[in-house]
């Protein structure tokens, strides 16, 4: 007897590394995350250590990215801010996923819920992201949690829409019918048969939402409706550097570059994942 050879589909991780843009995107965002995670080890100064003598110093060997108006080290602050920016982005994404998937599944499965949910989704998507976020933060009162909740709510409809549309397709497929014929309870059909087949599109969308949410957080902070200005996020840093543009450009340039790098790399990852998981493109692998 021949030995049983189990040949599963090539592992996703291996496939991911074979795609150049995807690999680059992943490398950059992971590096940024690593810097943020290891901030206490990497940052030469405490993020809030004041040094009035050294205020508004340009980048140098001592202060890689220069200092701000209170003499705080921009390099250390950028790294520490990454912690918050990434956390807000990630938390908002998770929150958006929870709401979006729940609503999408409910709408896709229950006709009555669908009428209501579909309207709400449409209505929310008619608002510009930032306006809706500002309104929500204003209504809830600005704080870190509020920003996360607001961004989660703002981006949930995107996911809900995708999940709903796919659910409507999948629920009609014979394997779902087979499960119904077996008497499998609805909630298990939702999770085992529907949700499990939606992992790829959700993952792709979540990556994009991560990027959008980070960008939105920065915008909110820049506009002064986000997290409190004392907490260093890339957005608050740019906001405070705004008054010194032309005089101390490094105050805005470095956190700006950090935002661009993370958003760009996340977009690359999202695009790469989408190509990778698209069965039509996958065939030729």
């Amino acid at each position: 007897m021949a030995a049983v050879s189990i040949t599963p589909a090539p592992r996703l991780t291996t496939l991911m590394l074979q795609r150049k843009t995807l690999a680059i995107g992943l490398a950059v965002i992971l590096a940024i995350a690593l810097f943020a995670l290891l901030a206490p080890l990497i940052a030469p100064y405490a993020p809030n250590k004041l040094s009035i003598v050294n205020r508004l110093k340009p980048p140098s060997g001592t202060y890689f990215f220069g200092t701000d108006e209170f003499g705080r080290d921009i390099f250390s602050r950028t790294i520490y801010a990454g912690r918050l920016s990434l956390t807000v982005g990630a938390a908002a994404t998770v929150f958006a996923c929870v709401i979006g998937i729940t609503l999408g599944l409910a709408a896709g499965f229950f006709r009555r819920a669908d009428a209501v949910i579909a309207r709400i989704i449409d209505a929310m998507m008619a608002f510009p992201d930032i306006l809706l976020a500002i309104a929500l933060v204003a209504a809830l009162g600005p704080s870190l949690t509020t920003v996360i909740v607001a961004l989660g709510i703002v981006y949930a409809p995107r996911l809900a829409r995708i999940v709903r549309a796919s659910t409507l397709v999948i629920r009609e497929l014979p394997y779902v019918e087979a499960a119904r014929a077996l008497g499998v309870p609805t909630w298990r059909i939702m999770t085992r048969h529907v949700l499990r087949n939606l992992v790829s599109p959700i993952l792709v969308q979540a990556t994009f939402i991560f990027a959008y949410a980070m960008l939105a957080e920065a915008s909110l902070s820049f506009l002064g409706v986000g997290v409190s200005p004392e907490i260093p996020t890339w957005g608050t840093m740019i906001a405070s550097g705004r008054q010194y543009v032309g005089q101390a450009d490094w105050m805005t340039i470095f956190p700006g570059v950090a935002i661009i790098l993370s958003v760009l790399s996340l977009q690359l990852v999202g695009d790469g994942l989408r190509d990778l998981l698209d069965p039509r493109l996958r065939k030729d692998l």
């Binding site: 497929l173 014979p174 394997y175 019918e177 087979a178 014929a181 077996l182 008497g183 499990r196 087949n197």
Partner: peptide
């Protein structure tokens, strides 16, 4: 009663959950 009656489908591709 679902246990007592079952169904077999036409399309051998879409009748099995690809993730299971």
């Amino acid at each position: 009663y679902r246990r007592r009656m079952q169904i077999i489908f036409q399309d051998p591709y879409s009748s099995l959950n690809p993730r299971m």
